[in-house]
Simulated scan of single mutants.
Amino acid sequence: MVATPLGNLADISQRALDTLRMADAILCEDTRVTTKLLRHYGISNQLIPLHDHNEQDRTPGLLTRLHQGQRLALVSDAGTPIVSDPGYRLVRAAQEEGLAVTSLPGANAAVTALTLSGLPPLPFMFLGFPPRGEARRQNFAALRAVEQAGLAATLIWYESPHRLLETLRTLQQVFGAGRPAAVGRELTKHFEEMVRGTVADLIARFEETAPRGEITLLLGPPARDDTSAQELDTVLKEALKSHSVKDAATLVAGIVSLPKRTVYNRALELAREEKND
């Protein structure tokens, strides 16, 4: 696995270039994108398209080549392979067959955006692309429920520019207008931009100026004075005084509007803590 530049073609290691030259073939998402990189560095090599639509069919043949002793370099269009890009099924299959797999570190949009965002760097959760449509709201609501159960992390997504505003509006509905957030746009490229502010600030900004280019979206953790987790524990502890764990979770889930499974898991933890005490 060879990490490639996000946009600035200088952001690639000498080791990566040597690997691309010496490989028996290069597996890539889009041959047009990878050809641009290779031409820039004077590299000529066989390119094999590997993407979501053909990875499963191509994997057996690629494994055969690896068993024959060939060296294959896997790249994505930009950044570190298999991070929201194709290749995971091939890598997993190669590992299961005892074939040697290694990763050459390099550019990654999520980490680059995190370091520029001004948001707490640890812990963070990278969540890929948000679901589309109604599933997006359900996904965000589940994350908010986990926050109410105690999670405090910077959340990171990739998003397309034409869906960014809709996603920001959904974040506002679920997490609140005042949550700190950031949008990284065209990272490492000539028009690189990092927009910081509250969710409401970002909505106002991109309503005025439509976003363009590759987007990385970050949402800061809840404020320290966000009492959602403490309130959940308080209500659960009271319910556990007179109810079983299952019944307490059912009762409290209805009160706090959280998924029953989330509340049940927290009720189990509190019950164990009480027993240990």
Results as ranks from 00 to 15, higher is better:
144 R>K: 14
145 A>E: 03
145 A>T: 07
145 A>L: 05
149 A>D: 13
149 A>Q: 12
152 A>C: 12
153 A>T: 09
154 T>L: 11
155 L>Y: 14
156 I>F: 03
158 Y>M: 15
158 Y>R: 05
158 Y>T: 04
159 E>Q: 14
160 S>M: 12
160 S>F: 11
162 H>R: 14
162 H>T: 13
163 R>Q: 07
163 R>K: 12
164 L>A: 12
164 L>S: 11
164 L>E: 08
166 E>C: 01
166 E>P: 00
167 T>I: 07
167 T>F: 08
167 T>E: 00
170 T>M: 10
170 T>C: 15
172 Q>V: 07
173 Q>I: 03
173 Q>F: 00
174 V>I: 15
174 V>P: 10
174 V>E: 12
175 F>A: 12
175 F>S: 11
177 A>H: 13
178 G>E: 15
178 G>Q: 15
179 R>S: 07
180 P>R: 15
183 V>Y: 09
184 G>L: 06
184 G>Y: 04
185 R>Q: 15
185 R>D: 01
185 R>H: 02
186 E>C: 07
186 E>Q: 12
186 E>V: 05
188 T>G: 10
189 K>H: 07
189 K>D: 08
190 H>F: 13
191 F>T: 10
193 E>T: 14
193 E>I: 01
194 M>N: 02
195 V>W: 00
195 V>T: 14
195 V>L: 13
196 R>W: 02
196 R>C: 08
196 R>N: 03
196 R>L: 01
197 G>I: 06
197 G>F: 08
198 T>S: 15
198 T>H: 11
199 V>T: 14
199 V>S: 09
200 A>W: 03
200 A>H: 13
202 L>A: 08
203 I>P: 13
204 A>W: 01
204 A>M: 05
204 A>G: 05
206 F>A: 08
207 E>I: 04
207 E>R: 09
209 T>M: 07
209 T>E: 13
209 T>V: 15
209 T>C: 08
210 A>T: 14
210 A>L: 09
210 A>V: 11
211 P>A: 09
211 P>H: 11
211 P>R: 10
212 R>P: 07
213 G>T: 13
214 E>P: 10
214 E>D: 13
215 I>M: 12
217 L>T: 04
217 L>W: 08
218 L>E: 01
218 L>Y: 03
218 L>F: 04
218 L>Q: 02
221 P>R: 00
221 P>G: 00
222 P>F: 01
222 P>N: 02
222 P>T: 02
224 R>G: 12
225 D>E: 13
227 T>G: 02
227 T>K: 04
228 S>N: 04
228 S>H: 06
228 S>W: 01
230 Q>T: 05
230 Q>Y: 02
230 Q>K: 12
231 E>C: 02
231 E>W: 01
232 L>T: 04
232 L>I: 05
235 V>H: 06
235 V>P: 01
235 V>L: 15
235 V>R: 15
236 L>H: 09
237 K>Y: 01
237 K>A: 06
238 E>C: 08
238 E>H: 13
239 A>P: 10
239 A>R: 09
239 A>G: 10
240 L>F: 11
240 L>S: 09
240 L>H: 08
241 K>V: 02
241 K>D: 10
242 S>H: 14
243 H>D: 04
243 H>Q: 14
243 H>C: 08
243 H>V: 00
